[in-house]
Write a protein that binds this DNA or RNA. Structure first.
Length: 423
RNA sequence: GGAAGGGUGGCCGAGUGGUUUAAGGCGGCGGUCUUGAAAACCGCUUCUCCCGCAAGGGAGACGGGGGUUCGAAUCCCUCCCCUUCCGCCA
């Protein structure tokens, strides 16, 4: 949620921001509703004050045994007026809140302007693409060939967008999860958490999935319960409605979770293989940061995620998302894109964002600063990494001429000593 | 899922319609006293919103929401959560 004071002070800034994001929004409606709400509130508070004093007076008179019938009649009228205003206030406030929850975050000044992903700006590159003296296969063919990915049975069990991992494929997935968790806890100082994978509506509102992106979420029928699209949701909500001590910041969590995404529609090449699935695994990094240092935390979070790819020896690049491609809740996002030899492209494997106080405001997540003031903190998160896509990248980048796949050295201990997967 | 009992400030806990401005205690902070500390004593100890340049004034919050009433922590409805027991279950 944006700070409504910004909207009051300089609505043109919000209009400009929405234009940069290619978004249409009835800003004027919000401003008028807000004005209306404050007018009602002012009048309501005045009347309630009057009612309070008068009611107290009646209590005293009654205790003395005086007659209060006349006064009661007058107060009944006052009380009725308060009731009417209260209903009005509730309605306007609800309407205003509905709109406010659908306004996206304001991009940070360092975010490049642009319309689509094509305007994202590459900021760094690490390593170089592997060279093959043969035609590299796409990961789904490799996976089938060496018998670790079963797409047909995945579809039989659940439908398209679900894959069955078998044997060393399943092992590889868990090896990566363990490896990533170890790396972030032992080397980067994150605290490991294991969260619920279903959450209520309030949690989804905090992080920004609801109310706007309802159609992308799996919901449990007849219950206030959603399957998480990312561990970001439960982890960020750990401190919802809390006031944290300043000394505790930054708080850094790492969480493994499966992620469930409905996301209707297919996306070109990604319909094949495990790049785009309705269910996938991810190791997620979440930070609760002091507002003054959140952009430093963003850089170090990016480095923490990059480090996984470096250890795995996978070539990647980092782009900063332009205003048109930036996510709803985010003020600034870096995407890490891993090299996929079969497509000769870079594919998103991690998304690292600073939400500033946008989620904190929605979830009422605050801290008390050294002067005793209560302030919203900043939340950040990043994939560290998407596990399914990491498997795809390993299969493609570590494939060998004979069809086998070498296991990156750092993973061998997690694979119980297995150094390659053969058909 | 069923039954019973609960949910009050950072924590414990009193409060069953009206000077409650939520008692009392613990913890915490500040002060007095002291060479220093402890003890004792005194004071302070939530958050949100509205009006106002400010000083200041007002409103709301006792699990959430709604209702009754001039007036609700207190009565009614509803939902959520916790505890215990039963059922089911890994």
């Amino acid at each position: 949620m944006i700070d409504i004071k910004i909207l009051r002070r300089s609505p043109e800034a919000i209009v400009e921001m929405l234009r940069k994001r290619n978004m249409d929004f009835p800003v004027q409606d919000v401003i008028e509703l807000d004005k209306k709400m404050r007018n009602i509130k002012t009048e309501l508070d005045r009347l309630r004050g009057e009612l309070n004093t008068a009611s107290k007076r009646i209590g005293i008179k009654k205790a003395k045994g005086e007659n209060v019938d006349e006064e009661l009649k007058i107060l009944k009228e006052l009380s009725d007026r308060v009731s009417v205003l209260e209903d009005e206030f509730r309605a306007v406030e609800g309407e205003l809140n509905c709109l406010l929850l659908k306004i996206p975050n304001i991009p940070h000044e360092s975010v490049p302007a642009g319309k689509s992903s094509e305007d994202n700006v590459e900021v760094k590159r690490w390593g170089s693409p592997p060279e093959f003296d043969f035609d590299p296969l796409p990961h789904w063919e490799i996976g089938k060939k060496i018998g670790i990915l079963d797409f047909e049975r995945g579809a039989k069990i659940s439908g398209s967008g679900f894959t069955l991992y078998t044997g060393l494929g399943a092992r590889l997935e868990f090896a990566l999860i363990s490896f990533m968790l170890d790396l972030h806890t032992k080397e980067h100082g994150y605290k490991e958490v294991l969260t619920p994978f279903m959450v209520n509506e309030k949690s989804m509102i905090t992080t920004g999935q609801l109310p706007k992106f309802k159609e992308d979420m799996y919901k449990i029928e007849g219950e206030d319960m959603y399957l998480i699209p990312t561990a970001e949701v439960p982890v960020t909500n750990i401190h919802r409605d809390e006031i944290l001590p300043e000394e505790s910041l930054p708080i850094k969590y790492v969480a493994y979770s499966p992620c469930f995404r409905l996301e209707a529609g297919s996306y070109g090449q990604d319909v094949r293989g495990i790049i785009r699935q309705h269910q996938f695994n991810k190791v997620e990094l979440v930070k609760f940061s002091h507002p003054e240092t959140s952009y430093d935390e963003l850089e170090s979070l990016l480095e923490d995620a990059e480090y996984v790819l470096k250890k795995l020896g996978l070539h990647y690049r980092v782009v900063v998302l332009c205003t048109g491609d930036l996510g709803f809740s985010s003020a600034k996002t870096y995407d890490i894109e891993v090299w996929l030899p079969s497509q000769k492209t870079y594919k998103e494997i991690s998304s690292v964002s600073n939400f500033e106080d946008f989620q904190a405001r929605r979830g009422n997540i605050r801290f008390r600063d050294s002067t005793g003031r209560v302030r919203y903190l900043h939340t950040l998160n990043g994939s560290g990494l998407a596990v399914g896509r990491t498997v795809a990248a390993i299969l493609e980048n570590y494939q060998q001429k004979d069809g086998s796949v070498r296991i990156p050295d750092v993973l061998v201990p997690y694979m119980h000593g297995i150094k390659e997967i053969k058909g």
